[in-house]
Design a protein around this nucleic acid. Sequence first.
DNA 1: ATGAAAGCGCTAACAA
DNA 2: TTGTTAGCGCTTTCAT
Lengths: 338, 338
Amino acid sequence: MITIREVAQLAGVSVSTVSRVINDLPDVNAATRRRVREVISLHGYVPNAGAKTLKQSNTNIIAIIVKGIGNPFFEPIVEEIQSKIEQTHYIPLVHYIDESADEVRSASLLVAEKKALGIVFLGGNPSAQARAIAHLQVPCVFATVSTEGLGIPNASCVCVDDVRAARQATDFLIDRGHKTIATLGGRRLADDLVNKRYIGVKQSLEAHGLRINDALYYESFFTFEDAYRVITQALGRTQAAAPFTALFAMSDIMAIGACKAIFDSGRNVPDDISVVGFDGLKIAAFYNPTLTTVGQPGEEIARRSAELIIQSINGGSSGRQILLDTSIVVGASVKTCF
Amino acid sequence: MITIREVAQLAGVSVSTVSRVINDLPDVNAATRRRVREVISLHGYVPNAGAKTLKQSNTNIIAIIVKGIGNPFFEPIVEEIQSKIEQTHYIPLVHYIDESADEVRSASLLVAEKKALGIVFLGGNPSAQARAIAHLQVPCVFATVSTEGLGIPNASCVCVDDVRAARQATDFLIDRGHKTIATLGGRRLADDLVNKRYIGVKQSLEAHGLRINDALYYESFFTFEDAYRVITQALGRTQAAAPFTALFAMSDIMAIGACKAIFDSGRNVPDDISVVGFDGLKIAAFYNPTLTTVGQPGEEIARRSAELIIQSINGGSSGRQILLDTSIVVGASVKTCF
DNA sequence: ATGAAAGCGCTAACAA
DNA sequence: TTGTTAGCGCTTTCAT
């Protein structure tokens, strides 16, 4: 690998001049600039960004940490945050990590090595490591999860009101005549969005004078396969009446797994069982039948997250919580049943 | 940010001792090690990896460049390559880039800055920049695309035989009595996999004495939306007989978009039109109806790619081409029609 | 307009 | 077992 020093030698100039050319700084003779550029492209010189940030005291980097590669819900949001940041003088740096990785560790690495000025988190669970987040010392924005009541001074969040959203979905089903409504979600932990959504379901049932039956809560991972497995089991092998006429799934992925289980049990969506998903993924619109789903305002989540992190970096108040509204995207997967 | 020097001072030792502790090297007194560790965790010291690779002359990094974030086909392959590399003394470094980004530029950055010993490319098009790839000077393996005939000495590839795979899909439809078979693919460019697959389709039609009709080639982007748009247009607004009884789509994503278009036109899959996809995505198994698709051997592509890059780094022969077999995953989206 | 030189945080001889 | 020191490739004053 050729370095700046070798480029300087080959061009017959000093390293500082090469540095000036690389960084498009003024005070370089046009002819000199041309000669240096020539050497650079001829030898395929690539500046070492590591050495650069090592030397530079300050950057304009805002890191975006995405936990859950291939989560289709995050995709458009990441793109939008990135593009919003690019419209300022800040530089977005997207960092994908595995579902099982430690997002706060990644963040601290990004702060130390890349001198990131702030972090936007997509996915991940702030409640588990409030202290470590505070320790990062840079503003953090959690997109799509809440940081309410965690007491992290440098953290803000932009998310939907999960209680309200689940109530909305359940209301929707009840309004269409359903009385035995099952819920398909993840493991319920305190302060978790899964728990919040189930609270919303129960609020709706209660408000309509319907019975709350915890046996109709089905627990599954957020995957096609596991949702399929759980609902297949719930429906049993018999062609007998299903234990519920409607199902609220906490993600579109789960909803699709559930639909397939319903079909494979010899039943139909929505004729035998109505299904409502959550997230508003693209695939929901292309599934057969079109999935009714609780749409998250992805574009707004992205915009507000970008605004919030920039505000916080510029000395604005951190610790804010922005709650956005969901809206039901009506598909063909729900039947009116009286 | 606290540095190694400050840690050394706080622990009352030299920087080299701290370095030894960080890197788990021997020759450190147990008590000293403990003391240094304490200072590190107390102050949340994070070593600067940039400075480290700057100093180190050689690393064990193998970079994996994934072009096309959120491409569900790549996901499991990336994971598998990563895990295979982890079983050796090499360290995988996954780098996601946008569909529109320059993968060779990213590669050269990774070689320069991270001192990557080799690169595995997922996605991207080697034929466009053969020279630039050769310039990288490190072994490259292209997973899922062919480098045949490009004359890049340091590049190998692991991919399926696209001609054969498409012939297989078309044979499958013809065997079930279909005679007017449409193809849904991307823009046909020379040396591109899209072109190869269409050649396979034509070979199959020809071998069975069926007419090749280029009007039945529908061009679309590899997205739900565009496939939907194109097939909706192809089917017209009338309930008249469709111009084809079967459709071969060059990706499962396109196949699903096409299915939805067929449904929305008032027709049915597979009763009116049979559909075969390509890739063997998870969603194909959960779609309704289950999608028949040309399954790519993802696990094998991953394994062979990992093996090949390691062999090449260890001085083995580069420039190899490994062709793998696809197999039809039979779903409910194809009807026998005589 | 250009160059010399210090030093960013770290590793790896080599010395002690 | 521990410390000293010379850079890795780059930016950035400060001279010239």
